[in-house]
Structures are given as C-alpha cells and as structure tokens.
C-alpha cells in the first residue's frame, strides 16, 4: 500500500498556520463598521462630515454683497463663481471683517481663462496677454464683476483669434471677413443674439473663382462644372486656409 507522502504533510502545516493567522488577523484588523453600507468603512461618513467646510457657494455671498451678486448674474461672468476669483469663502462668511478674502487685482490671474489658446471655443473672448495693453492691471479697464470691453472690439480677431491668425497666413489674407460673412454691427456687442451669415453654396466662391468671374486676374480659376463635382467648396478647402485640401497641405 502506498504511504501518504510525508512532504505533503510538511507543506500543509505552514500553510495552515499562515491561513489561520490571516483569518485571526482579519478579525482584529478589519474595522467594525466596514461593509455596513458598501465596500467602505461606514464610520468614515461621519468623519468626512465633521471636517471643516472651505467653500460655501455663491448664495452665501448674496446675504451681504447683494449688489455684486445681482450685477454679476446679469454679466458675462455669470457662469464664473465668486470663489473662483476670491478663493474659499467659508472663513469670511463666519467673520467678515477678520478674514478678508483676497481679490486678484494684478494681471496674472485673468489670463488663466482669457489668454489666447487655439483650442478655446469659437467666440470665447481671448487676448494676447503680452500685447493687450501691457503694464496695466486688467481691472483698470474691465470691471471683474461686469466685464465689458470699454468699447466694442473693432476687429473680428479679438474674439475669433484663431481664424484671424489662420487667414493671415493664407492666400485669402486680402479678402476681408465681411466679404464672406455679412456681419451686423450688433454682433460685436452681442455676438450670440446677432449672428453673421455664412456662405451657403458653391456659387458664392464662384463669384471670384469661376472661369467667367468678374474678378482680379491673378485669382486662380476653376471649372465650376467639373471641379469638386457637386460638393460645397469647403468640403475640401478650409475657407480660412484654402490651400489646405481636406486637411493635407498641398
């Protein structure tokens, strides 16, 4: 008859000791409230709730700074919370005169949102910080709670910086924006209410580029009947950088 191999017994002993040790340790080490509400220590909720509050939200400010809150709510900064600029306000709300929140009065802060960056959405007000009235604090011309430019920007590039800069380096550099976009003057004050037009069809570009167009001689001509078939031109040419065909430079 075969013996039960001795080495198996030798192995089982340490394994049993380890597993038993772990089971006993588990009893002592897993907190009592673990698993009551989910895969966490239920007591942690109470501990988290007893932690000091730092941010109080915009409503809290309204009790005392009613005017500013109202003003801001009607301004372009309506989506920017007070504490974004003034920091956590809890201590200030508790004792207003002792803990005064800081205010970002220098030029460093506003460009966090407003410095030019091509990936910001179309129309988002942006500036090139180094050239935009350098040396002066932003708040000397713009009210942070109701930011409007001192006068409406004359140039489309103030808000459409990316497009303006792109067009600047394209063959269309001398074609003004307004040739292709009929822009109501109100668009510069209130861009979302008064929207400029956008060319609607192939014939629009044909006004300058068709074989029989009445336009300057050096403008390259195409056969409107065959070129690009029936697609609108901007399927293939980005109108603000027309030498780019479908993304690839010629």
């Amino acid at each position: 008859m075969k013996r039960f191999p001795n080495q198996i017994i030798r192995l089982i002993i340490p394994f049993v000791i380890i597993i038993a040790g772990l089971l006993i340790a588990k009893k002592f080490l897993v907190p009592a409230s673990f698993g009551k509400l989910g895969h966490f220590r239920a007591d942690a909720l109470g501990e988290a709730m007893s932690k000091p509050i730092h941010y109080v939200g915009q409503q809290a400010c309204a009790d005392c700074h009613d005017e500013i809150v109202k003003k801001k709510a009607a301004s372009y900064h309506k989506g920017v919370a007070c504490e974004v600029c003034h920091g956590p306000g809890s201590a200030h709300v508790d004792s207003p005169t002792e803990n005064k929140p800081p205010a970002p009065r220098d030029r460093g802060f506003c460009p966090v949102c407003h410095s030019y960056n091509p990936s910001r959405p179309t129309g988002f007000p942006q500036i090139v910080t180094v050239t935009h009235n350098p040396g002066k604090a932003c708040i000397s011309c713009h009210n942070a709670h109701d930011p409007v430019p001192p006068h409406a920007p004359e140039q489309c590039g103030a808000c459409h910086g990316d497009i303006a800069r792109t067009k600047m380096a394209s063959p269309h550099v001398d074609v003004p924006c307004t040739v292709c976009h009929e822009t109501p003057t109100e668009h510069r004050m209130n861009p979302r209410m008064y929207v400029p037009t956008i060319p609607a069809n192939r014939e629009f570009c044909g006004k300058c580029h068709a074989k029989d167009a009445q336009s300057a001689k050096e403008i390259p001509r195409i056969d409107m009947g065959t070129h690009g078939e029936r697609y609108v031109c901007w399927e293939c040419h980005y109108p603000h950088l027309p030498q780019v065909y479908n993304g690839a430079a010629k």
């Binding site: 772990l22 340790a25 588990k26 080490l29 897993v30 673990f34 698993g35 895969h39």
Partner: peptide
C-alpha cells in the same frame, strides 16, 4: 494587507 482582508 487590506486588499486581502476586504477583497473588492
């Protein structure tokens, strides 16, 4: 040790 004692 907690990943052994409170397996997720």
């Amino acid at each position: 040790y907690e990943i052994f004692f409170t397996p997720n």
